[in-house]
Design a protein around this nucleic acid. Structure first.
Length: 464
RNA sequence: GUCCCCAUCGUCUAGCCCGGUUAGGACACCACCCUUUCACGGUGAGAACCGGGGUUCGAAUCCCCGUGGGGACGCCA
């Protein structure tokens, strides 16, 4: 069997969103699964709405997601190929060639300055109620689409349609089909919103005397119930890939989540390495029904990946995040200290961008105190006495490990017939201003004696 | 309005093709356990076959009709 060739064909007219990423992913997965070729083709024929910024965003997002292309515009290690150019704006001559063929064979004709594709069949005129005008219809047999995911779909086409606008620019249907023929694409994997275009495309293939490739229309990604109705759009919260990149989500977590939207391993497994997904992915396994986007499940997936990250990568991601935030307090912190703080926080967060709020107090003595927590903690026991004892204790205490710190506080507590918990809450409040965070022993160890003592003293002073 | 696609817990889904399950898992939610806060983790609970007809001894599973959801109906892509 000949090699599978699939393509992802975005147009640089808007932000790169979840739906596009999922379509790209499914194409990429199928190429990798079959040992085929993944082509990136840029459909930039809409001069009005194109922009270089959006084009770069496509490259950047695909790279970030790890969806490298074998053929396409040359960007970094991806791209190149023998079927270029891969930007439609540079393929004008090829289109002219194909249009010439259609004109010569009588399958296309000029009218009103535009070029129309001609349906072959009995013609009749009818008044279209919906469009309020008389239109010419053509009787042809229903177009049959053999879809790898949906099975056999029939659609009726009954009008000639424009393939080249009166301004000379060929329309999407035409260039799409020409490129897929010229690039020898074997499988067209795209969103279900294109299913109703496909009958036109099949007709065009026939017009060129070419057997259509296999079609696979994948389900759409819909808004989650809280976002409303309909398909996910660029304006919806969480729709943009850029957003996850900026929040330092792990791309492999996003890819894993996206793979699960409309596909599954056939068993209960969800979290899987990409190699495993590549191995198992196949077109017949793709679902037919649309899926609603669930940001919470994505966040959970990201957390499970975050938890198992090696320390070096986690710290590097955190470093990049804070650098992007231009957080000067963090930037000036010693590398070792930064690392310790991050590793203390790693098991506690759902995404990297929570680190700022979660660990800010490690880098500045001027941290906010949660008023509600303060009230609650101070209402219990004798916090002033506990703080005073801790201050006295820490003066001569050894703080090298969590275990030793824990032992120290327990010993201190035992003297007064108290428990560890009697010190934990107030110390945490004084040290971090809140009641959530890493273990108090870890917090004390990483902050170090000087900071701990200063903060405890300052806080106690503030109570007088 | 016309055409096309789809239909299992709130959400993602397994089961459907090749009818017989206490309809399974995950996220979310709730409770409990663990615990040094918050998480993680563990245990448990609640939660679904859209409706109606067929076919059949038997239907989530096969067929039809409704209903609902989605998409497409541009000289946009």
């Amino acid at each position: 069997m000949s090699q599978v060739r699939v393509r992802f064909a975005p147009s640089p007219t808007g932000f790169f969103h979840i739906g596009s990423a999922r379509t790209a992913l499914f194409n990429w997965l199928y190429a990798r699964h079959t040992g085929g070729v993944f082509i990136l083709r840029i459909e930039d024929t809409d001069k009005e709405r194109n922009s270089e910024a959006f084009l770069n965003l496509i490259y950047e997002s695909l790279n970030w997601l790890g969806l490298n292309w074998d053929e396409g515009p040359k960007v970094g290690p991806s791209g190149g190929g023998d079927f270029g150019p891969y930007r439609q704006s540079e393929r004008g001559a090829i289109y002219q060639d194909y249009i010439g063929k259609l004109l010569a064979s009588g399958r296309a004709y000029e009218k009103d300055g535009a070029i129309w594709f001609k349906l072959l069949g009995e013609r009749y005129k009818i008044f279209d109620e919906h469009r309020k005008k008389e239109v010419e219809k053509v009787k042809i047999a229903p177009v049959v689409i053999e879809d790898q995911i949906r099975g056999r779909v029939e659609r009726l086409e009954d009008e000639d349609f424009v393939i080249v606008r009166s301004d000379g620019n060929p329309v999407f249907h035409l260039v799409n089909v020409i490129d897929d023929i010229a690039m020898e694409v074997t499988h067209i994997i795209r969103g279900e919103d294109h299913l109703s275009n496909t009958s036109k495309h099949v007709l065009l293939y026939e017009g060129f005397g070419v057997k259509p490739p296999a079609f696979a229309h994948i389900p759409l990604i819909l808004k989650s119930p809280e976002m409303g109705q309909g398909k996910m759009s660029k304006r919806d919260k969480g729709a943009l890939i850029e957003e996850y990149q900026k929040r330092y989500f792990l791309p492999e977590a996003l890819v894993n989540y996206l793979a699960l939207l409309g596909w599954n391993a056939g068993d209960d497994r969800e979290k899987m390495p990409i190699a495993e997904i590549v191995k198992l992915f196949d077109l017949p396994g793709v679902n037919q029904s649309n899926a609603k986007f669930d940001g919470k499940k994505l966040a959970n997936m990201n957390m499970t990946y975050l938890l198992e990250q090696p320390a070096d990568r986690f710290v590097a991601l955190a470093r990049a995040h804070f650098a992007a935030e231009k957080n000067s307090a963090v930037a000036s912190a010693p590398e070792d200290y930064f690392r310790e703080v991050m590793l203390l926080s790693q098991p506690k967060i759902k995404s990297i961008d929570e680190l700022g709020v979660y660990s800010g107090y490690f880098f500045s003595d001027n941290f906010p105190i949660d008023a509600k927590v303060r009230e609650k903690v101070l209402a219990k026991g004798d916090p002033k006495a506990r703080l005073a004892e801790l201050i006295a204790w820490i003066e001569g205490a050894n703080l090298p490990t969590d275990a030793i710190i824990e032992e120290g506080i327990k010993t201190l507590a035992a003297k007064g017939g108290l428990g560890f918990g009697d010190y934990q809450a107030v110390a945490r409040l004084a040290l971090s201003g809140t009641n959530v965070g890493p273990s108090i022993t870890g917090m004390i160890r990483v902050l170090g004696r000087d900071r701990v003592q200063t903060r405890l003293k300052n806080f106690l002073a503030g109570l007088a």
